[in-house]
Design a protein around this nucleic acid. Structure first.
Lengths: 224, 224
DNA sequence: GCCGCGCCGTCAAGGTTTCGTCAGTGCCTC
DNA sequence: GAGGCACTGACGAAACCTTGACGGCGCGGC
């Protein structure tokens, strides 16, 4: 049985999640603030954590860092509309996805399933394959329709960062720092240019990307 | 370093083997079913294969046959108690030894060492052949159109590094360090000169290389 | 509703780095 | 002394990174 830890200080949300998740066969634990959330993570070892960023005691990124320090369970962040910078900070700190409050239960459940599914086959896979192309991380090779695709060094690095975290939203800042270096955290123009080049080389319809998705205001996501 | 490929569909066993083998200095690759096991064998060229007979997709003997078709690495079979006829069939198909599940890690490691030790004297290097030439790693000979090609020691070392990893991209730094030594990681000019010489001796059209490919900014690749 | 603003995608051109090639020098062996 | 090999320098060509300009789109203010 998949176990979920819900960390939120609003009783109504906690109750709603407990009812819905239990009804769908999840084992549910709850905590009402950051400190007890960390304690509950250590105690119950949940398969996935749903974390509200607006907790009374600790900053959301600190809670994420506290979990990530020793545990790799996926973290799904809940956040009120408008706190964009908090969401970006949460993703940079190691969260896997976010849902904006107020949220639909269906959406949250879908993202929850996706997070759990992603975590199951941990990244031990040297080659990632989707319907239209495949990426061999070890050989540094991309094949599309049986034909090798030539990527420049920058294109390859960018693709590699995204592909190594399938389904996960990666912020522009993080991408820039991993590919160009820590001094380039705000040169978002580079990203637009190179993501466009990757899409032109990999996507069936570059104008309507299917794998290299843009999350406006947040970053990019490789969708397997 | 001795490399081991573990093919098993039970994550717990894969994890346990990965941890124990890595701790003892083995290089470990894993696969979760027969098809990816065969692919991983071709890709990583392991020194020994640990193969579970109860895979979801292919029959164990078929996997053994698929490996034995071109590779002589020893195969250690894992099998549940009671499937005696399956074990016999596996040994008949070309497996070298078997261990009954549940197994003790010490026993498995002992059998693994034995299998590697037995295989060591019978070490035979393959010869890589493409349409226009063939490279005999053991004899250190290259033949093109039936005529032996003379290579200088440096040319041979460079070719050997590339040919031993077919299809895989090798960075300039890696090539330089393997051929010239660790202090020459940035003398990229050497590479250009010697790659050009190899192409002149091996490629049908040295100006448009077909086997010794340049990946601008990244390195070189031997394309079989 | 309309407009300005910010974010994103596209294209093209410049300057820079990297690559391929040729030719030449020095060293060692025979 | 002849020959083979490793290494170096120079130069044109190709590939790449960066940058700027422009248009589309969504969103919030007026």
């Amino acid at each position: 049985m998949t176990s979920v830890l819900v960390v939120d200080d609003e009783p109504a949300i906690v109750r709603a999640l407990r009812i819905n998740l239990s009804a769908r066969g999840y084992e549910v634990h709850t905590a009402v603030d950051g400190a007890s959330g960390l304690a509950a993570t250590a105690k119950h070892r949940p398969d996935v954590v749903i974390l509200d960023l607006g907790l009374p005691d600790l900053d959301g990124t600190d809670v994420i860092a506290g979990i990530r320090g020793w545990n790799s369970a996926p973290i799904l962040v809940l956040s009120a509309r408008g706190h964009e910078e908090a969401k970006v900070a949460a993703l940079d700190a190691g969260a896997d996805d976010y849902v904006t409050k107020p949220f639909g239960m269906d959406e949250l459940l879908a993202r929850l399933r996706a997070a759990v599914r992603r975590a199951a086959p941990a990244e031990d896979e040297p080659t990632v394959t989707v319907a239209d192309f495949s990426v061999d991380l070890a050989a540094k090779r991309v094949v599309r329709d049986g034909v090798p695709v030539r990527l420049t060094p920058t294109e390859w690095q960018l693709l590699e960062v995204l592909v190594r975290q399938p389904g996960r939203l990666v912020t522009g800042r993080q991408l820039l720092q991993e590919v160009w270096g820590s001094a380039y955290g705000s040169e978002t123009h580079y990203l637009r240019v190179y993501v466009a080049q990757l899409r032109r080389k990999l996507e069936p319809d570059p104008a309507k990307p299917r794998y290299l998705l843009t999350e406006p205001g947040m970053g990019y996501r490789f969708q397997p």
